[in-house]
Amino acid sequence: MRILYILFFLFVFSSSPLQAQTKPVGRDSSSVNKGKLLPIIATESALYLGSMSYLQFIWYKDSERVPFQFYNDNAGYLQIDKFGHMFGSYLESYTGYHLLRGAGVKKKHALLYGATLGIVLQTPIEVFDGMYEGWGFSWGDMIANTAGSALVIGQELLFDEQIAKMKFSFWQSPYAKQANGYLGNTFLQSLFYDYNGHTYWLSVPMNKFMLKNKLPDWASISLGYSANGMFGEFENKTYYRGVDIPQTARERQFILSLDVDWTKIKTNSRVLNKVLKGMFFIKLPFPALEITSGGKLKGHLLYF
């Protein structure tokens, strides 16, 4: 559900994320562009109301209402789910902040009303989870959601820019074909169900901490987190729909790779510049080094 919600958010803002950014984001403008601001407010309001309606009338329609309950899923999926919450919140807060700044909203107001968007949009989901059978309010999810927005707000306050950008990459894992549909039958289904194929990155331009003025501003280095061998939330299933599932060891993966900061690439095309700014969350496949929680070290010619 989390990835579905994020994809929906991207679809809604696909025509405008960061495209209103006609002035340097780090400077306070003297006036607000109402022609840009009003559509942003209308879109964010529609997204919020639409998501609340979807949760109440579609997502939970077959679930029984119960007294408010909690659910401790902090150990689930080796914390991949928590990184997903943090990434979703970061994405929403980053986009909300830059849209408001591009419309001329002062920084302190853009931080208050835009950079908190991740928490504003994600919190109702957690509350609804606590109200329906089979779900539960997760403090771990709330902490991750808060961390995503805090990453945007903290960097803007400290550095006046997003030096470290949170990114996402996915490739269908070999486990999907062994799970008899439990991890999805197609690439798109696996995007939602196959957490083994998720990798979450923190990407930083190398000029910010080493090799200053020696490399292009867009040249970056990324630290990624992923996990493998998962056929269940807390422990692996042994069969699914009457078919045995191979037993595997669950392990974490830490990846070091090169990357590109799309927002630092400048071209002579206004349209292309907007497209590149909207790709800020995408990790480009590059060679990578991986070390697992079991101590195994391996290299990848290209890591997705």
Rank of each mutant, 00 (worst) to 15 (best):
S169F: 03
V127I: 15
Q172L: 03
S93L: 02
L4N: 06
G76N: 14
P287N: 12
I80L: 15
N273Q: 04
Y97E: 05
T95E: 04
L99E: 12
V127K: 05
S89G: 08
K61M: 04
D244G: 00
Y239N: 15
S226F: 08
G184C: 08
T267Y: 06
I282H: 03
G181W: 01
G224Q: 08
L117Q: 02
V120I: 14
P67D: 14
L258Y: 07
G76Y: 14
Q69R: 13
S14D: 05
D81A: 10
K296D: 11
H109D: 02
N74R: 13
S30K: 14
Y60G: 09
R27C: 06
L117M: 03
V271Y: 07
L151I: 09
Y54I: 14
F128H: 11
V275H: 06
V271I: 09
H198Q: 14
A176L: 08
Q19D: 04
A20D: 10
L78D: 08
K108M: 12
I255H: 03
T248G: 04
F168G: 00
N180L: 05
M131L: 15
A103S: 12
F57D: 09
D160M: 02
Q19H: 07
F128M: 14
F11M: 09
G35V: 12
L47S: 06
W139P: 03
S51D: 12
H98C: 05
G88Q: 03
K61Q: 02
Q162E: 09
A115V: 03
A42Q: 05
L78Q: 09
F286D: 07
K212R: 07
F13Y: 12
I153E: 03
K264F: 12
F83P: 00
H109T: 08
M206N: 00
E290S: 02
I125R: 10
V66G: 12
